[in-house]
């Protein structure tokens, strides 16, 4: 299975809007919550109440500081990182067991935990850090694109989307078919100049990130009549309000 399937027409993935993300970690925790009891669960936590707690997360939210440019003041940037469901991912091809595979029908990259031997090779092969090994379970885990939600007819249609997308309070996360150029996500990517991460590595990620819009600090002086330049030291400035015919 490790051989990649023919490139599917359907390329399901996420579009994450870095302009809107406030770094609240809601996506990360809802992901953990859904998947803990889903097809990839449990997302085991070690020393959950101890000195160095660590667990499996499919989605981790980083925070950065972007230094100022002349045109743009310093910014804080939040950046959620999860599997990009690459089109040509080495995480799949390196897998010796076939546990790691890319679904032919929609391009979702998954791990079949029943086959996985826990060699960690796929996690080394993923440049995006999207694979998480659980020493307790002895197998590799990763984002499932909530495959057990998005097709699940027991879930109301409007909620048939990844947990992280459903939860995101700013609605900075979008899910859809990036192989269909008419899909809402593809249009969003086109409109906002969505980018792929580290394209130079050749993994051809499906997920896209929408870069932050230019911040409008003081750039354009808004059209407004010039200030009246009152000499405030003199009280007659109040005079001009004297004859205002106000309507009450």
């Amino acid at each position: 299975m490790t051989a990649l399937p023919a490139v599917s027409k359907k390329k399901l993935g996420l579009v994450i809007d870095l302009d809107t993300c406030v770094g609240c970690h809601a996506c990360a925790v809802s992901c953990k919550e859904w998947n803990a009891g889903g097809i990839a669960g449990p997302l085991t936590d070690e020393k959950p109440y101890g000195d160095d707690p660590a667990g499996v997360w499919f989605n981790r939210v980083h925070s950065y500081e972007i230094e100022a440019l002349d045109a743009q003041p310093a910014m804080t940037l939040h950046f959620p990182r999860s599997c990009l469901h690459c089109e040509t991912p080495a995480c799949v091809t390196v897998c010796p067991t076939g546990a790691s595979y890319k679904r032919a029908e929609d391009g979702i990259v998954l791990v079949d935990e029943d086959k996985c031997i826990g060699c960690k090779l796929c996690s080394w092969a993923c440049p995006y850090g999207a694979r998480e090994y659980s020493p307790v379970e002895g197998v590799m885990k990763k984002c499932t694109l909530c495959v057990d939600r998005i097709y699940n007819e027991n879930i109301p249609e409007a909620s048939r989307q990844p947990a992280c997308v459903q939860a995101c309070p700013t609605r900075a996360r979008h899910f859809g078919d990036l192989g269909d150029e008419n899909s809402a996500v593809s249009k969003l990517v086109a409109e906002r100049g969505g980018v792929a991460l580290m394209p130079e590595l050749g993994y051809a990620p499906v997920n896209r990130y929408l870069p932050p819009r230019a911040r409008r600090a003081g750039a354009a002086t808004p059209a407004s009549p010039p200030a009246e330049n009152l000499e405030t030291k003199e009280l007659p400035s109040l005079l001009r309000w004297l004859d205002r015919a106000l309507s009450r």
């Binding site: 998947n35 009891g37 449990p42 959950p48």
Partner: peptide
């Protein structure tokens, strides 16, 4: 007493 360091496998039962 300090808590146990046993791993937390919440959700395993649902699978």
């Amino acid at each position: 007493a300090d808590p146990s360091d046993a791993p937390l496998r919440y959700g395993a039962m649902f699978r």
